[in-house]
Design a protein around this nucleic acid. Structure first.
Length: 105
DNA sequence: TTCGTGACGTGCA
DNA sequence: GTGCACGCCACGA
């Protein structure tokens, strides 16, 4: 089926908005749930263009390896890390234990 | 219109 | 554990 780019954004936003607090998921997982297998990059592109005042929990979307997508030390890296820690997620050596915090249906 | 880039994932050496 | 190649796709120059 042919999804317009707007439909794709819509689906991605919807999936992300369903991630419960205290849980995280990967870009690839979001893409898959949105019906866009192997399009993890697209998820990143969409999240990047989100307005700052968006209510979307974009910070709960990380890389499959358990690390954040930003280079450590950057402003955005710190911000995302802090928001996740506020939700009770523990960082071990700058990385999250996916086995424990990964969101599954 | 083509080309390079990027908030990625997976497989393999 | 690390590095590299390839796939995927929207976007700006």
């Amino acid at each position: 089926m042919t999804l317009s780019k707007q439909d794709k954004c819509q689906r991605i936003w919807q999936v992300v908005s369903q991630i419960p607090a205290g849980k995280v998921t990967s870009y690839g997982q979001v893409a898959e749930l949105a019906g866009l297998p192997r399009s993890a990059r697209l998820v990143g592109t969409v999240l990047k263009s989100l307005p700052p005042n968006s209510r979307l929990p974009w910070h709960r979307v990380i890389q499959s390896k358990g690390t954040l997508a930003f280079p450590a030390g950057t402003q955005r890296y710190y911000k995302q890390k802090k928001r996740l820690q506020d939700e009770g997620i523990t960082f071990i050596n700058e990385r999250i234990h996916m086995k424990t915090y990964r969101w599954q249906l």
